[in-house]
Amino acid sequence: MAFAASRRLSAAAAAPKLSSLFTPRPIPNPKPRPLSPESGDDPRRRKARPRSRHPWGEDAAALLRRLHEGRYLPGPYIPDAPHVVSPDAVKAAAERFGNDHQVVAKWLSGSDLKKVALFGCPSVERRTVFASKRLRAFFNLPEEKVCSSCKIRSSCQFINQEVPRYDKVILSDTMRILALFVLDAYPEPLQVTAEVKASVRKLLKDTINLSI
């Protein structure tokens, strides 16, 4: 009996304290994950800074008027105030207009279209980038040539990416591009030359006149 009691006392003395059973283990610091090229956190891919817009006066008003008259841009009459219109809404309306008037594309100036294509993308937004790429592909312009001199390439996810070539100018693509120019809705680093502006204005004017 004395021997058994002695064993119980020694076992109790050797038992660990309850507090020691719940002592938190140190958590190792997680290894930082490498950034993928598509990650939005990549410091090399910066978003282009927004800026205040100054639409191209009569050109922007003419586009909005045509879209409004064709019911592509519903709502109040806004051609006199193009600076208050959402560029996204106008891009979508211009695309629908282009889809309905594709036949007009074959009468547009090839030299003016090529100048606009060579300028590059007026936005890094996916649909606009691929619209611009398809226009360049029509003229067999290499992507590397245009992308290498692009002022907003650090914000773009589609640098040098090729697209299939179509045997026609896609008017919905062209209208999306022209709308961004005349609404002055392109990123700040882009400097649109007088020559490109003249081509944009002529293409827009001809498209509107030929669609009536």
Rank of each mutant, 00 (worst) to 15 (best):
P28H: 07
D88K: 12
T128G: 00
P76D: 13
W107C: 06
A185W: 01
H54I: 10
E144C: 08
R49H: 12
L171Q: 03
R51Y: 11
P32H: 04
D80K: 03
V85R: 00
D167G: 15
P189G: 11
H68L: 12
S211W: 13
C156T: 02
S199E: 06
R126D: 15
F3Q: 03
I159A: 13
F22M: 11
L141H: 00
A60N: 02
K31N: 11
K47V: 05
V124A: 06
P187K: 09
N99K: 13
K151L: 14
E69N: 11
L141I: 11
N140K: 07
L73P: 00
A179T: 09
L135N: 10
R71P: 02
F130H: 00
P142S: 05
H83A: 13
P55M: 04
A105T: 02
V192T: 02
V129T: 04
E162I: 08
T128H: 00
D173W: 09
L63P: 08
S36C: 05
S86C: 02
R134H: 01
G57L: 08
M1F: 15
P50V: 05
R7N: 06
A2N: 01
A117H: 01
E144T: 06
S172T: 05
R25S: 04
P24F: 04
S6R: 10
P142C: 02
V192K: 04
M1L: 05
K145D: 11
E58C: 08
E95T: 07
L204V: 03
S211C: 07
R51A: 15
R8N: 14
P16L: 15
R8K: 06
K197G: 10
R96K: 13
K47G: 07
K91A: 07
F181P: 01
R176C: 12
G120E: 08
R153I: 03
C150I: 00
P28N: 04
E195N: 07
S148I: 00
K145I: 13
L73V: 07
V192H: 03
P55G: 05
K114N: 12
R71E: 08
L183R: 09
R44A: 15
A93Q: 06
R51L: 15
R7G: 08
R65V: 12
W56C: 04
H68C: 14
R53S: 00
D112P: 14
R46M: 04
T193V: 11
K205W: 01
N99Q: 10
A137G: 08
A185R: 12
E195K: 05
S155W: 08
V146T: 02
V104L: 08
A198S: 14
F3R: 09
V124W: 06
R96W: 02
K106P: 10
D112F: 10
A194C: 12
L63Y: 08
Y77C: 09
R7W: 07
N99W: 01
K205T: 12
L21S: 10
P122V: 03
V146P: 04
R33S: 15
V84P: 14
E125L: 04
L135K: 03
A60R: 05
D100Y: 01
